[in-house]
Simulated scan of single mutants.
Amino acid sequence: MLCVLGFVLPYSQFVPFILEHGFDIKLFFEQLFANRISGFFGMDVIVSSLVLWIFVFLEGTRLKIQNLWVYIACNLLVGVSLGLPLFLFMRERQLEQQTETLGY
């Protein structure tokens, strides 16, 4: 459910922008950093994304989770709001499988 919300809510804002302006990257970043408050949120998302990439790589490698690129792609195509809950869900599944395999 969180993955669905993480996709739908950001795209509810992004799709109208794309329909109105197309893929105008320059305008996108101008509006993202239009003032200090929007810049605050923009920088927060950028830093959160970098932290997510490191977490996905380290934790995914440790737990031998397959296709780690998928979570980075979700982050880049939608945002932390999809990449993080999806990775955490798959991480939990992997942990449960490892527990079952060990017979606990």
Rank of each mutant, 00 (worst) to 15 (best):
V56I: 15
S49C: 09
L27S: 02
Q94N: 05
L50R: 14
E92N: 13
Q94Y: 03
F57S: 09
R36Q: 11
L5H: 12
I46Y: 12
F87Q: 05
S12N: 07
V51K: 09
F23T: 14
P85G: 02
N67P: 00
G39W: 01
E59Q: 15
V78W: 01
L102I: 05
Y11W: 10
F17A: 03
V56Q: 15
L5K: 14
E59S: 14
L68S: 01
S48H: 08
Q31Y: 03
L102E: 05
G39I: 03
V45M: 13
T99G: 12
T99C: 06
W53S: 09
L52A: 12
I25S: 09
R62Q: 05
W69F: 12
T99E: 10
S81L: 10
Y71D: 05
G83E: 01
E20N: 12
V15M: 10
S38H: 10
L2E: 04
P16V: 14
V15G: 02
V78P: 01
L27T: 03
F17Y: 09
G60Y: 00
G42Y: 00
P85F: 00
F33A: 08
L5M: 14
E96I: 05
S81D: 09
L32Q: 07
G42Q: 05
Q97F: 06
D24N: 15
Y104H: 08
L50G: 15
G79F: 02
G39L: 04
I54L: 12
L27P: 03
P85I: 01
L9W: 11
F55S: 14
R93T: 09
L82D: 01
R93M: 08
L2G: 02
R91M: 13
V70K: 13
E59L: 13
P16M: 13
V78Y: 01
C74G: 07
R36E: 15
L63Y: 07
N75A: 11
S48E: 12
Q98A: 12
D24F: 08
E100H: 04
Q66W: 10
N67F: 02
F14Q: 04
L63A: 06
G22S: 07
I65L: 06
G39K: 04
F89R: 11
L88E: 01
Q98D: 08
L19E: 09
L32I: 06
I18W: 06
N75I: 00
L27Y: 03
F89Q: 10
M1F: 15
Q66A: 11
L2K: 03
L77P: 02
R36D: 14
F14K: 04
Y104M: 06
Q97N: 09
G79N: 12
F28M: 13
L84V: 10
I54M: 13
V15F: 04
E30W: 10
F29L: 13
F23Q: 15
I54W: 15
I72W: 14
Y71R: 13
L58G: 03
T61P: 04
R36H: 11
D24T: 12
L27I: 02
Q97V: 08
G103P: 00
G60W: 00
N35F: 00
I18N: 05
L58Y: 08
W53K: 07
A73N: 03
E100P: 00
C74D: 06
I72Q: 07
S12T: 06
I18V: 15
E100A: 07
Y11F: 05
R62V: 02
V4I: 15
F33P: 08
S12D: 03
V8N: 01
L88P: 01
L19T: 10
Y11P: 00
I37D: 06
S48C: 14
P10Q: 03
G6Y: 00
P85K: 01
F55I: 09
M43W: 09
